[in-house]
Design a protein around this nucleic acid. Structure first.
Length: 115
RNA sequence: UCAGACGGCUGGACGGCCGCGCGGCGCCUUCGGGCGCCGGGAGGAAAGUCCGGGCUCCACGGGAAUACGGUGCCGGGUAACACCCGGCGGGGGCGACCCCAGGGAAAGUGCCACAGAAAACAGACCGCCGGCGCAUGCGCCGGCAAGGGUGAAACGGGGCGGUAAGAGCGCACCGCGGGUCCGGCAACGGUCCCGGCACGGCAAACCCCACCGGGAGCAAGACCGAAUAGGGGCGGCCGCCCAGGGUCGAAAGACCGCUGGGAGGCGCAUUCCCGCGCCGCCGCCCGGGUUGGUCGCGCGAGGCGUCCGGCGACGGACGUCCCAGAUGAAUGGUCGUCCCCCGCCCAUUGGCGGGGACAGAACCCGGCUUACAGGUCGUCUGACCCC
């Protein structure tokens, strides 16, 4: 299934300022509930701190693959998620990266309004 | 076999599962799109953005001079270059080869740290030689610049003669300068003759000479498209000088940018000469397009192969292929097997763990520069061994 992407800078800023946040060794997750009932949306961020262009692209691709696997079945409708890459994102074994995202999603969901 | 020089190629392989974006075809569609099949989807540097072009828009009238920037041995290659090839000159290496910003220093200005006596019209610290005086090694006077010392560099080099000691003072050689002739398209090289040391170095110091050069860049630019500003048209108001015209007036004159010209200001890199364009305020209408979308946007100085010309860079002919096109930015994620490297354990097989370089297209080409684990091929050089 195709997940809608966040693309505009204002959309990212909105999630960062008004959403919730959970940090794990492999990634940082930000989440925000929207008023409408549209499907969930997701965005990816990898700053210069992570590495050069090659490393940042690879980090985004791994986060995208993890989002397909975890957010697809478990993500909430009408939510915006932003996954932020860290230095570990590229080196972390993939199974651990998946469980990182799983736990982060749980922690964020507990604080929010739920389904 | 070892050591080395130069040039080229390559940049992990295979498979399973799950994906991304592009194109084509087919089907479906609520016209937003969806599904299926097929095809192709990162680099040698895609990097730095340092040169040269294509392309696009802007500026674009001519001449002279100036300024600014760049290039700098010669010949060739090329669309072009600061690139490449072949030479020349200088330097390094036993050699294969490598390195050089390599025009002009008798046009002028300037600089040459430290050290050293002295750093550029020469001069004399230690010294050398002669004379005089005496307390025989010092003082004074004169001659000298070969020797020592300093330095990146010391007013030709070292040799013979010569001399009190010395000095191109004399001689031959080398260097330097001028000329003749020969070879070469040329840079330049060589022969012979003459001169008799005059002309230190630095031009990546200013400078001089020769040649070249509009500006900005795909966020260029075009189209579709709410609002604002600028632009065009109409109406009104204001404005320096001259001429024409118009209105009012009997006239004097007054008024009117309606027409032409001038002055002034601004622009065309600067200056000069000629030349060209534009010219303030308010209202209404037309129109205008930031974000967004579409195009630009990949058939090209194109790749590969064969043959021909050329020492080579490269050129030509024929055949053949179509080969990324994203825009919060696709070209992948993951697992397994194998390959290579490293560490540890057993140390024969083997086992465990870790690692696999530099790096990601953004309009496109030609170069340069920088980064890079490893593998591989070819040519050549020097040593040693064998025949």
């Amino acid at each position: 299934m195709a997940i809608r992407r966040l693309k505009r800078r204002p959309e990212f800023l909105q999630v960062a300022s008004s959403g919730q946040k959970a940090a794990t060794p492999g990634l940082v997750l930000q989440a925000r509930a929207r008023a409408d009932a549209d499907p969930l949306r997701v965005g990816f961020t990898a700053s210069r701190k992570v590495g050069g262009a090659v490393v940042r692209n690879r980090a985004k691709r791994r986060l995208r693959a993890a989002a397909e696997a975890v957010l697809g079945p478990k993500g909430l409708r009408a939510h915006d998620y932003v996954l932020i890459a860290r230095a570990e994102t590229v080196r972390r074994p993939f199974q651990l990266l998946l469980s990182d995202l799983d736990r982060a999603l749980e922690r964020v969901g507990r604080g929010g309004e739920g389904r």
